[in-house]
Design a protein around this nucleic acid. Structure first.
Lengths: 315, 315
DNA sequence: CTGAAAGCGCTAACAT
DNA sequence: ATGTTAGCGCTTTCAG
């Protein structure tokens, strides 16, 4: 493996001169620069990035903690992050956590071990208190809001969006509204339930189904909802795939959407566009882009990304 | 920043002893080991990974060249890779290429610069001839077959799968079969056309639509196909999302699937499960897992992953 | 403008 | 068993 010393020797200069041309320093005589460049070319020399990172103490690499890969919401987030990273010549390393506290800590350690300049936490299992100390070793940006000044945030006002969606349904005359969520123990689920209470009051039994992730889950949930004694007239689904499943179940029962059943989904996913599903778009791609920008700028700002409700033909 | 020297001093031992306990060497007196461990704990010391990688010449990190993030097929591949990497304590860095030759070369350079132990190429823009020289600097594994011995492969027999799918349709009595593909200039599209010729002969005008990626595209393609003078009775879609769109268009026209129109998709994606779509499952997750295993083993084997046709209710 | 030399933080012979 | 020392490949003062 040829290294900087070899290049220096072959070009008849010192290693510092080689380093200077490598880093585009101004004060290098043209003839020396040329001959160095030529030797580099001939030898097909590529500098060792580990040595450079070791000295500089930075890697231009961002770690992204992701509970699940292969989940549309996290994919959108990651997509935004990758876009922005690419623009800025940063690399991104995907860190799958499956909500394991140990894994998360392991990844945070890697920030400390100088593998990453910063970490984006899309969702987490650990308390902020245990995460915060690591912010001494790089920029940590969260995709959910937290008041801690050590942590940058690129987030949306999820609670308000839930309120808005329920209110929209109420305004359209719906009183029997049910909904689905993903993980039962998540903060998001809690907010959803709170928002429901705020708009509709008491939650009738059977009106909330959790652990819904894909189209099939939505199909099954719709079936359950519609077999209830007090049928809901509208459903708020936690994702357009889930909403798509509900739509298909409704259709299979010859029901008209939205006349017999209104459906609103989330995240403006491709399937919803095709089916004409109304959706609460949290703009996850933008959130990802912003999160990435924050770590690149080493900023700990709190940036709120506006959500928008896309009305199509299902409510 | 506290380093190994500090730990050595505070524990009253030499750096080599600290290094030894760090790397679980056998011959370290128990009392010294204990005191080193204690100092490490007190100082919350974390070794610098860049220094270690520099010396060892390996990073336990794999780069994955991906033309598009946010594409279901590449997502499945990536998902498999991440699963296997996680199991083996490897990190994976996502390298979006958008089929740019320059970007690809840039990423290959990073292999040479010792940032990755290996690279997985899920799809590529450059010729193998220009890629192969980089196999001197790490394991390169491709997700498509290539005879070059320098390149490991984890692949499926795409052509055979196309043949099988078309044959299946023919066996069911279909003679007017159309199909969609993604990029017009891709090898995959070429194979699709060849397979068509082999089974059905001449390709009628309008029976092939390219640039189909999502549900909407499928919806539009089905519309186009069904407005042809010589309507196809079956469609082979390049993905279940696309197939889903076709299914929905057919339904919107009160057509029965498969009686009026047979549809077969690809990749066994969630939407297809929900809609009961038959599909050619290339097992991309498995291909990703295998590709990852190959780079971990530094193997250049050629491993063929079997595809399977999942028959549901749409053919 | 250029080179010598001192590190960056760590591992791994080589002694002892 | 443990310490000394020479690097890994590069950047960056510091002189000149």
């Amino acid at each position: 493996m040829t290294n900087i010393k070899d290049i220096a020797r072959l070009a008849g200069v010192s290693v510092s001169t080689v380093s200077r041309v490598l880093n585009n320093y101004k004060y290098v005589a043209n003839d020396k620069r040329e001959s160095v460049l030529q030797v580099i070319e001939e030898m097909k020399y590529t500098p060792n990035k580990n040595a450079i990172d070791l000295i500089r103490g930075e890697t231009r690499t961002i770690g992204v903690i992701l509970p699940y890969n292969n989940n549309p919401a996290f994919d959108q987030l990651l997509n935004g992050i990758l876009n922005k990273a690419l623009e800025n010549d940063f690399l991104v390393t995907v860190l799958p956590s499956k909500y394991s506290k140990e894994k998360e800590m392991e990844y945070l350690q890697k920030l400390k071990s100088k593998l990453f300049d910063g970490i984006i936490i899309t969702s987490r299992a650990n308390d902020w208190e245990t995460i915060i100390p690591y912010s001494d070793f790089g920029t940590i940006v969260s995709c959910e809001y937290t008041p801690h000044p050590e942590i940058g945030c690129s987030y949306m006002d999820r609670y308000s969006s839930f309120l808005d969606a329920f209110q929209l349904l109420k305004n359209k005359g719906h009183r029997a509204v049910s909904f689905t969520t993903a993980r039962l123990e998540s903060k998001s689920t809690k907010q959803m339930i709170d928002a429901y209470h705020e708009i509709f009051g008491e939650l009738p039994p059977g009106y909330h189904i959790s652990d819904c992730h894909c189209l099939e889950d939505g199909y099954g949930a719709a079936k359950q909802f519609l077999e209830l004694h007090e049928r809901p007239t509208a459903i708020y689904a936690n994702g357009d795939e889930v909403a798509g499943g509900m739509y298909l179940y409704a259709k299979s029962q010859q029901m008209k959407v939205p006349a017999d059943l209104a459906i609103i989904g989330q995240e403006n996913q491709p399937v919803g566009i095709g089916l004409g599903l109304s959706t609460v778009d949290h703009q996850l791609t933008k959130i990802g882009e912003q999160a990435c920008s924050l770590v690149i700028k080493k900023s700990r700002e709190k940036v709120k990304i506006p959500y928008r409700i896309v009305e199509r033909d299902s409510v």
